[in-house]
């Protein structure tokens, strides 16, 4: 492996790294918002909306991200909406992630015993207070492991962004290989940068997971 080549590539990878992280996390925050809303609608059986939500989950969980991105990026302009590759990236990731996050939140909601609702109502709490102060905090600490697994999964899924010409890590690596044939160096840096992106998430994640478990279960 040629060290000089590696060093000369690093600035390009850093640029791609920040783009990947930015779009990845924008997508993840969107996914969390969608997932929470969808899980709420399904768990509390909100009429009409819960039907739509179930269709949404099944649709996005059972189609590949690449296909979803193609639909948004190449399909939407055909009906008059043009969006940039970046927007397409995080919207696509958010929609895919939302369907996974919804399931994680839903299992959290289901883990809160009905007696919690009853004791809160008996104290005079409104439905809204019950949700925000009693159910959600308990549901989230149960959902943490699922949410974390999804976050890591979604960050890795960003590698398909290259297909819609986003200059992410994967795109940069493929581009450099195509231009200079320094395959070993380009792939080595690709792996290193993905690990740099994901390892902290895993480590901080398992710490949060432990804290959340301790909070509710005491173990």
């Amino acid at each position: 492996m040629n060290l000089d080549v590696i060093i000369s590539y690093i600035p390009l990878y850093i640029e791609a790294f920040f783009l990947t992280v930015k779009i990845g996390w924008l997508g993840i925050f969107l996914a969390l918002a969608i997932g929470l809303a969808v899980a709420f609608v399904i768990h509390f059986k909100i009429p009409f909306l819960s039907g739509i939500s179930i269709v949404y989950i099944e649709l996005f969980r059972n189609t590949p991200l690449l296909v979803q991105l193609f639909f948004i990026y190449f399909g939407l302009p055909k009906v008059g909406f043009t969006i940039s590759a970046e927007t397409c990236g995080y919207v696509g990731l958010g929609l895919l992630g939302g369907s996974y996050m919804a399931e994680a939140f839903r299992s959290g909601f289901e883990s809160v015993p009905k007696s919690q609702t009853e004791s809160a109502l008996a104290l005079g709490l409104s439905r809204k207070q019950l949700f925000w102060s009693v159910i959600l905090p308990q549901a989230i600490s149960q959902s943490v492991p699922g949410i974390l697994a999804n976050v890591i999964f979604l960050l890795k899924e960003t590698s398909v962004f290259s297909a819609i010409s986003l200059m992410d890590l994967m795109f940069t690596a493929k581009d450099l290989i195509g231009l200079y044939y320094d395959t070993k160096e380009a792939l080595f840096l690709l792996v290193v940068f993905y690990i740099v992106m994901l390892l902290p998430v895993s480590i901080i994640g398992s710490f949060i997971e432990k804290k959340a478990r301790f909070r509710t279960l005491g173990v």
Partner: peptide, 9 residues
């Protein structure tokens, strides 16, 4: 209640 039902969090 019989099962206390304090808020665990």
């Amino acid at each position: 209640f019989q099962s206390y039902d304090l808020f665990p969090h």
